[in-house]
Design a protein around this nucleic acid. Sequence first.
DNA 1: ACCGTTGTGAACATGAGTGTTCACCTGCTC
DNA 2: GAGCAGGTGAACACTCATGTTCACAACGGT
Lengths: 179, 179
Amino acid sequence: MSVHLLHTATSVLLKDPTASLGDVARAAGVGRTTLHKRFPTRTALVRAVANDALDLIDSVSSHVDFSRDDAIEDLITRLVALGPRVEFLLRFPGLERDDEIRRRIEEMDRPVLDLITRLQGSRLRADLPAWWILHTLYAGLFNAWEAINCGRLAPLDAPRFVLTTVFEGVANVGTADRS
Amino acid sequence: MSVHLLHTATSVLLKDPTASLGDVARAAGVGRTTLHKRFPTRTALVRAVANDALDLIDSVSSHVDFSRDDAIEDLITRLVALGPRVEFLLRFPGLERDDEIRRRIEEMDRPVLDLITRLQGSRLRADLPAWWILHTLYAGLFNAWEAINCGRLAPLDAPRFVLTTVFEGVANVGTADRS
DNA sequence: ACCGTTGTGAACATGAGTGTTCACCTGCTC
DNA sequence: GAGCAGGTGAACACTCATGTTCACAACGGT
């Protein structure tokens, strides 16, 4: 139904942000007229896709206990599994220009930012801004999705890769340090 | 001259990948006809912008001594300073579909990948693939550029942020570790 | 069998981006 | 001053995504 339509639109638009509505409709195995009846305009479709992704994140977020100290591990592991639909939020060009979407993204970031701030000084280093740590997490997710897409990374390995890299870094702890 | 034209095109297309050629010409303070005379087609312009960025990287790369163990620090510091022109290479949608550009990007990655591989086991951990470490570096660069654009990060702080985060991670070394 | 819903293809109008041409102007060299 | 290279705006035709409408087919419930 409409669910499958949104999912297809997500992957098509993610692969090529300039794809025409005809391309989306064809990929979904649906007439362009039908697509237009559900989403009267292109921006309406994009917003629907974004809101769908945000709904998905909300539902995942509600299963995470943010009061636990390992909430970040839990959250990241779940987000990695979501794949393209969340990637769409972080990648689609011009998405941040939509006020409603931007508001929901900030709203989605807030609990994570709070969590990071709370953990700074204990599990997380305090000499970096919370927003920087958040974006580093997102960057790790992004890397994982891209690697999975290219077939270089097994989906089950992804959470470990992201968490290890983001938390511990890529330096060899035994030997080296930056000057 | 033509140099300024390419720089302007870089920032305009980076901010909005769907910007029209008229927008680019106007931003550069030049007639659309003139733009067309230099770059007969849109893809020609995009390729010229990409090649210009790649030339810039080549010139930077030639100043880095890849045989030194701190070559990565040097490279990252220099790349951060380049800003939008390199960001264009990593962000512009569909750029990887151009064979020549893709070849040059791989060619640009190769010495860095070799360096990473060489350092694995000494300065860099060996339990992660070299390509993953490379992409983690790029992700750090990307974060820095974005933060600088938003005005949240001072350009002079950027290299330290990227290197610290990528090498050491965001975990607090004194206390915590992942399970 | 009737009717509302839903999807479909065809067709059309519109607008925007694009490639192209042309006549004109400017600044330079000889 | 003649000639020339380079820049400019205006105008044109063409393509294509898009929004919109319409008539028709399929389906399910009453």
